[in-house]
Amino acid sequence: MPVELERIPAQDKLPPCPRFKRWLLLGIVMLLAGAAATFLLWKGERSGAAFWGLATALPVMLWGLLVVGRYLGYTLLRGRCDKKNATTAARYSAGIARGQRFAWLIGEALINGLGSASPMTHEAVLAKKPLMMPCEPVNGGDPVRHRALAASGEMADREAHYLPEITAHVQNLVALIPSTLTCYLAVDTGEQFSTLPSLLQKSVTHPLVRIRDLSGLELLDYWLDCHYDRAAALLVVSAQLYEHPPEDSGEAISVILLTNCRLKGTPDVSVRVHRPQICRDGNLDRAFERVMMWSGLEKTALKQAWTSGGQMASGDIFSKARETHAPGLKADKITHIDTVAGFAGVAAPWQALQLATRQCLNDIQAQLTVTELAEDNRQLCIVTPE
Rank of each mutant, 00 (worst) to 15 (best):
K330I: 13
M132I: 05
M61L: 10
T266R: 01
K202N: 13
L58S: 12
D142A: 09
E159N: 02
W223R: 01
Q354E: 09
F20I: 13
L76S: 08
E136M: 11
P9K: 13
R290Y: 08
D12G: 07
P276A: 09
A117I: 06
N112F: 05
D285P: 01
L380T: 12
M132R: 14
L181G: 02
W350G: 09
V68Q: 05
I28E: 00
H244T: 09
K129D: 02
N283W: 02
T371F: 05
T87V: 07
A50F: 11
I253N: 05
W306L: 10
L32H: 02
L173S: 11
A10W: 00
H325C: 03
G64M: 15
R378K: 14
P246E: 04
L284T: 11
P245Q: 04
R78W: 13
G265T: 06
P16Q: 15
A36E: 06
L297C: 12
R210F: 01
R19H: 04
Y92Q: 15
E123P: 00
L176G: 12
S314G: 07
Y92P: 01
E247F: 00
C183N: 03
L40E: 13
L200P: 01
T300Q: 14
Y242N: 05
L176A: 15
M292F: 12
I211V: 10
R7P: 00
G113P: 02
L126I: 08
G27E: 07
R262T: 03
D363R: 11
Q192A: 14
